Computed example of a mutant assay.
Amino acid sequence: MVWLRVVLAPALLLGVLWVVDLEGVGRQLRGADPGWITVALAFSVAANFVSAWRWRSLVHWLGHRAALSRVFSLYLQGMALSSLLPGAMVGGDLYRAVGLRRDGAGTWPAGASVLLDRLSGLWMLWVLSAGAAAWAWTSGAQEALVNVGMAGQGRWLPLAMALFLLVVPITIICAGRWLPNQGRLSKLTGLMTRRGITAEFCRQVLGSAIVQLLSVAALACGGKALGLDVPFWVYVVTAAPIFLMAALPVSFGGWGTREAAAVVSLAPFGVAAPSAVAVALLYGIVALPQAMVGLVLLVMHRRREPFGSA
Rank of each mutant, 00 (worst) to 15 (best):
L4I: 14
L8I: 14
A9V: 06
P10T: 02
L13A: 11
V16T: 07
V19E: 08
V20I: 13
D21Q: 10
L29R: 12
A40C: 08
S44H: 08
A47D: 01
S51D: 10
R56K: 08
L58Y: 00
W61A: 00
L62A: 00
G63V: 00
H64T: 00
A66H: 00
R70T: 10
V71I: 07
F72D: 01
F72V: 04
Q77R: 12
S82D: 03
L84V: 02
G87P: 01
A88P: 01
V90F: 13
L94Q: 04
R102G: 07
G104A: 12
S113Q: 09
W123G: 05
M124N: 07
L125I: 13
A132T: 10
A132W: 14
T138E: 14
G140H: 05
G140C: 03
G140L: 06
A141F: 10
A144K: 10
A144V: 09
V148S: 09
G149R: 09
Q153T: 15
Q153S: 14
W156V: 15
L157F: 15
L163M: 13
L166R: 01
V167N: 00
I170Y: 06
I173S: 03
G176Q: 12
R177P: 06
W178L: 15
L191W: 01
T193G: 15
R195C: 02
T198R: 15
E200H: 09
Q204G: 00
A209F: 11
V211A: 02
S215A: 14
S215D: 14
V216D: 13
V216Y: 14
K224R: 15
A225I: 05
T238H: 01
F243G: 03
P249G: 04
P249H: 09
V250L: 14
V250N: 06
A260V: 04
A261P: 12
A262Q: 07
L266A: 03
P268H: 07
G270V: 06
P274Y: 03
A276H: 09
V277C: 02
A280W: 05
L281W: 08
Y283S: 09
I285E: 03
I285Y: 07
V286A: 02
P289C: 06
A291F: 01
G294R: 13
M300V: 14
R304K: 14
E305M: 11
F307Q: 11
F307C: 08
